[in-house]
Write a protein that binds this DNA or RNA. Sequence first.
DNA 1: ACCCAGGCGGGCG
DNA 2: CGCCCGCATGGG
Length: 285
Amino acid sequence: MNFANLNIRLFNLKHTFESAQPLAFYADYNEVANSLTYPSGGHVINIRRVKESDSLFVTSNNMDYAVKEVRERFRLDDRMNFIYKQINTDNFMDSAIKNFPGLRLTLNDPWEATLVFILSQFNNVKRIRKTTKSMIEKYGERISGEYDNKIKDFPESERIADASEKDLVKCGAGFRAKYIRDAAEFCTYNINLESLKGKKYDEIKETLLEIKGVGDKVADCIALMGFGKLEAFPIDRWVKRTMERVYFKGKETSIKKIAEFASERWGDYAGYAQQYIFWNGRTEG
DNA sequence: ACCCAGGCGGGCG
DNA sequence: CGCCCGCATGGG
């Protein structure tokens, strides 16, 4: 078994895994070992963050693939000190950053992001995870050669496009089953998400909005966590609630106004600000 | 029992 | 446009 030791600062695996990003819905986190195991591109990757050190151990049967994947997935080349400087605009942001230092945005496969964020609408993390796991088990390809062959890959859109709505409901998708099936068909036969990589935020979002079941918030989540567009600012009920309290004197404020506020204040790094607002808002008692 | 969940499409004015 | 409603389902 091969491994690599990356030298990484300001990367907290626990916060990153727990903060309801796509990996939270299917990766397996071991808190004692502070290690994360997940399938990717036909391989199983394990990373272990050594506490009180700057070491990140990567283990896989294909190290060339794994090291590159981990670097990209966890945005390890982001200059966190610089980003913090951009988004630490006030006392609230300062405490959010201090509460979750090293919480990183992740960069995920666009189709993965599309599926899990459609599934996330009007749903809770526990159930999103249960349903995602169930879909992986039912439609994912088996990965051979590691971990007792227990881990399957995230299913390609084609597999989900071939599924029946009824079977997706059985996985726990509820009323979102229809959206997920339509999205899978659309992503398999109508648009090529891969070809959107490198396009601008506006064009990516506009294209994503053509998918039925993808609205403003989900499109921004995909732009941010599937395409790495850091200016995207997804506004869900937690972000809205938290921002109304912190920045709008507790008054109901339209999503449009909140989006304008965020864009003005955090600009090109609004997406990072959003993840800290979201997670700080969700976790405070 | 009752409330809530990383929203969305559709129908209405 | 903006507003309002229903939506499947399980966990707290």
